[in-house]
């Protein structure tokens, strides 16, 4: 029995060897073969998806178009979809109007650190919550999750006072410490690990692998789709966070993109066009991450599945 499981585990990991990666990946499950063969169905699918996406992207389109408008045109009534004259210089001016490069660098520092720590500690803790049975585990888990339920506005002042006492305010470290250990990552990874059969872990134990090795050698490689989603969602959440950096970062040279964009919003007047330009620019890194991560959403453990 133990040998079969080991083979199984090896086979599952094997999918991720460099050779296998070059093989064109297929999704976990393809719908009925009959359907795939009909070109009419495929065309219908494309038309439907395109229409859906176009409708969904209307607000984004407005944002894109506004980023190329003159400031006064942004709020024109009735709504103006195409700028009267394209202000391409918005995309040039913004780099000098605010120190956008510095802000991008700070955002990247925060986002990379937090995402990395979140993935590491989150998947580690998730193993404890899903594959190691011990007393009080579920109570601890529920209380973990329940704290997510407290709105940040409620504890932000006590939290700030604590960070001030630790002399961490006005450092990027403060935000990393606050956001890298969120219960969200643990929760996501735990749910994923639950779907991996316990038999696999049991077999590995019988084969003499200790728990840490099981995590590193079996669980981590198997959980790529989940790690990819967690990385993406953490990346987006951190990158787009405004209130956290706003409260904790005071010096202008530590500001992130989202705080920087706020400088286009004044007490009485806004630079709405540049605000939209900045918003579009700030999406580009996430867009790249998303495209890079794409293949992990397609190719998961199920490509090899439990076949054997």
């Amino acid at each position: 029995m133990s040998t079969t499981t080991q083979e199984l585990a090896v086979k599952m990991i094997d999918v991720d060897n460099p050779l296998a990666a070059t093989v064109k990946r297929e999704p976990a499950y393809r719908p009925a073969r009959r359907g795939r063969k009909s070109p009419l169905r495929v065309i219908f699918m494309y038309v439907f998806l395109t229409a859906l996406v176009l409708v969904l992207l209307i607000p984004f389109g407005w944002m894109l178009s506004s980023s190329l408008k003159r400031n006064t045109e942004v709020f024109a009534v009735p709504i103006q979809w195409i700028p009267t004259s394209f202000q391409w210089n918005n995309y040039v001016d913004i780099w000098t109007t605010i120190p956008l490069l510095t802000y991008l660098k700070n955002s990247a520092t925060l986002t990379l650190s937090i995402t990395f720590l979140q993935l590491l500690t989150g998947s580690f803790a998730a193993y404890g919550f899903s594959k190691v049975k011990f007393k009080g585990r579920d109570v601890l888990f529920v209380s973990y999750i329940a704290t997510i339920a407290i709105p940040w506005q409620a504890y932000m002042i006590p939290q700030y006072i604590m960070m001030q006492k630790l002399h961490l305010t006005n450092t990027l470290m403060a935000l990393i410490l606050l956001q890298a250990f969120s219960a969200f990552g643990v929760f996501l990874m735990r749910q994923f690990y639950l779907s991996i059969p316990d038999e696999l872990v049991e077999a590995a134990r019988i084969d003499g692998l200790n728990e840490y090795r099981i995590w590193a050698r079996i669980m981590l490689p198997l959980s790529k789709p989940a790690l990819a989603s967690l990385a993406l969602l953490t990346f987006v959440a951190t990158w787009n966070d405004y209130m956290g950096p706003f409260i904790y970062l005071t010096s202008n040279d530590l500001w992130t993109v989202q705080i920087g964009l706020q400088s286009f919003v004044g007490q009485y007047a806004n630079d709405a066009a540049l605000l939209m330009t900045g918003s579009v620019i700030s999406i580009i890194p996430i867009f790249i991450i998303f495209l890079l991560g794409q293949r992990y959403f397609i190719a998961g453990i199920a490509t090899s599945g439990l076949k054997g």
Partner: peptide, 18 residues
């Protein structure tokens, strides 16, 4: 990626100050 994150962490620790 891990190295990049480690560098980022160090940077984060150094910058800032009252």
């Amino acid at each position: 990626a891990a190295i990049a994150a480690a560098v980022a962490l160090t940077l984060a620790g150094c910058s800032g100050g009252a």
